[in-house]
Structure formats: C-alpha cells, structure tokens
Amino acid sequence: MTDAPATLLAAQADRAMVAAMLARAFAEDPAMCFIFTDPVVRAKRSARLFGLLFDQDAAAGMRLVTAGGAAATFWRGPGRSHTSRLDMVRSAGPMLHALGGGLMRALAVSDAIDAHLPKGDYWYLHIAGCDPAMQGRGLGKAAVQAGLDRIAGSGLPTYLETPLEHNIGFYRGLGFDLTAEWQVAKGGPRFWSMMRPA
C-alpha cells in the first residue's frame, strides 16, 4: 500500500454507519457467534451492541474511522481497559436490549477478557474491524496504524486480544507479540493475547 487512506477521529454522527459496518465485519467472528448463536439474531443485535461500544469508548479513549467508513478502531486509554461498574449500571438497559438471550454468554466472554487483561498502564485496542466488502485493500491496517501513530508518544505498550488465529500474523506485522492463549469457559471461543512494546 503506497498511500494510506485518511483515518479520522469518529464523530457521534458516524455512530450508525460504524456500528453497521462492525456488525458486518464481525458476522463470523467466533466471539460474536458464541454470544449470538442464530445468524439472523446476530445480524440484528450486533449492530446495537457495537453502537453501545462506540458510545462507551468515546469516554475511555478514542474512536477512529477511515474516510468512507470502511474500517474503524476503538481504543481505551491507560487505566480504562475495564468497563467500570458505574458504566455497567448506566448501560444495563441498553445492553440487555442489545444482547437479549445472549446476555449470559456475553458476560462469560467479557469476564474472560477482563481476567486476561495485563496489569499496569497500556493502551488497549478494544475493537478493530473492516467491512468484508472492502477487505484486502489495507484499510484495516491503516486504521490500526493510525491509532498506533496517535499513541506513539505515550511511551506505553499496546494490548489486544483476538479470537481469530489468522489475525495473529496481521498483528505481528504491526509489531505485536503473542503473549497468551486462553479459552472462554463453557465451550466459549479461544482467544490469543498480544502486546506491542512501547
């Protein structure tokens, strides 16, 4: 890729577009398939869920989107990786509306992710996705790299987890190292934790 597409801070006006794109991007994601076992329900409810995560990550860090909305990343700043109890209470109604029958499975995934978050200060790449129709053009990489460039001066490492083994090579190409492999209880998906040094 010679010219990286423009990646900008996402505005509130981008919420519906980004949430719908992420629902498409994560349609076959193992964690989403575990939470929403029915693909029709998944298509309907996952956009609601990503809309809520879009809102939460506005206060926790930053949200980036490529021009045209084909790729997006949500980042949580140092000390903001965990969702606070207050945020959980505030979003309980909307989360129940988004998750429906997938609530308990979503809590299992969330609890497992929280249990494997590293100690100390770091940036957390919470969500990264690219519209399936636009994959293979370097847009996802550009969206991640734009975030890494923005936090480069912090002197802190960056953490992520992925339930897709084929993502490991993609993130290694961006400087991340594999640090752990683990599985969500009760038949949940396997995840890989990765850290990029400061």
Results as ranks from 00 to 15, higher is better:
residue 168 I to T: 07
residue 139 L to R: 02
residue 30 P to Y: 03
residue 85 R to G: 13
residue 1 M to L: 12
residue 59 A to S: 15
residue 124 Y to V: 09
residue 17 M to W: 00
residue 9 L to N: 06
residue 42 R to K: 12
residue 132 P to V: 02
residue 48 R to W: 01
residue 73 T to G: 09
residue 111 D to G: 09
residue 71 A to F: 00
residue 79 G to Q: 04
residue 66 T to Q: 02
residue 7 T to Q: 05
residue 36 F to R: 13
residue 161 E to P: 12
residue 106 A to E: 10
residue 102 G to Y: 01
residue 5 P to R: 08
residue 154 S to K: 14
residue 93 G to H: 08
residue 5 P to L: 05
residue 164 L to K: 15
residue 39 P to Q: 09
residue 50 F to C: 11
residue 88 M to S: 15
residue 7 T to F: 04
residue 51 G to C: 05
residue 113 I to V: 15
residue 36 F to V: 08
residue 138 G to R: 05
residue 191 F to N: 08
residue 168 I to C: 10
residue 186 K to H: 13
residue 5 P to A: 11
residue 26 F to K: 11
residue 169 G to Q: 04
residue 194 M to P: 01
residue 172 R to W: 01
residue 183 Q to C: 13
residue 55 D to C: 07
residue 109 V to H: 11
residue 65 V to A: 15
residue 95 M to Q: 12
residue 86 L to P: 06
residue 153 G to V: 11
residue 128 A to M: 08
residue 27 A to R: 02
residue 192 W to K: 11
residue 62 M to Q: 15
residue 119 K to N: 13
residue 84 S to R: 06
residue 189 P to N: 05
residue 158 T to Q: 11
residue 117 L to H: 15
residue 58 A to F: 04
residue 77 G to I: 01
residue 44 K to A: 13
residue 49 L to Y: 10
residue 49 L to I: 01
residue 56 Q to R: 12
residue 136 G to S: 09
residue 89 V to W: 12
residue 49 L to F: 06
residue 109 V to K: 10
residue 130 C to R: 06
residue 60 A to G: 05
residue 42 R to F: 00
residue 70 A to R: 03
residue 53 L to P: 03
residue 172 R to A: 09
residue 178 L to P: 15
residue 45 R to C: 09
residue 51 G to Y: 01
residue 88 M to P: 14
residue 193 S to N: 08
residue 21 M to G: 10
residue 77 G to R: 07
residue 114 D to L: 03
residue 151 I to L: 05
residue 178 L to I: 09
residue 87 D to R: 14
residue 180 A to T: 06
residue 164 L to P: 05
residue 188 G to T: 07
residue 53 L to N: 13
residue 23 A to Q: 14
residue 39 P to F: 03
residue 188 G to Y: 00
residue 124 Y to D: 14
residue 179 T to L: 09
residue 38 D to Y: 03
residue 143 A to C: 04
residue 6 A to C: 03
residue 75 W to K: 06
residue 22 L to V: 05
residue 19 A to Y: 05
residue 8 L to P: 02
residue 173 G to R: 08
residue 65 V to E: 07
residue 78 P to I: 00
residue 164 L to D: 10
residue 124 Y to A: 13
residue 176 F to V: 04
residue 59 A to P: 13
residue 50 F to Y: 11
residue 1 M to F: 08
residue 109 V to M: 12
residue 87 D to K: 11
residue 112 A to H: 02
residue 125 L to E: 07
residue 75 W to P: 14
residue 170 F to G: 12
residue 75 W to V: 05
residue 163 P to K: 05
residue 50 F to D: 11
residue 103 L to Q: 07
residue 9 L to W: 00
residue 31 A to Y: 04
residue 191 F to T: 02
residue 129 G to D: 04
residue 184 V to T: 14
residue 41 V to L: 10
residue 73 T to Q: 03
residue 196 R to T: 07
residue 48 R to G: 02
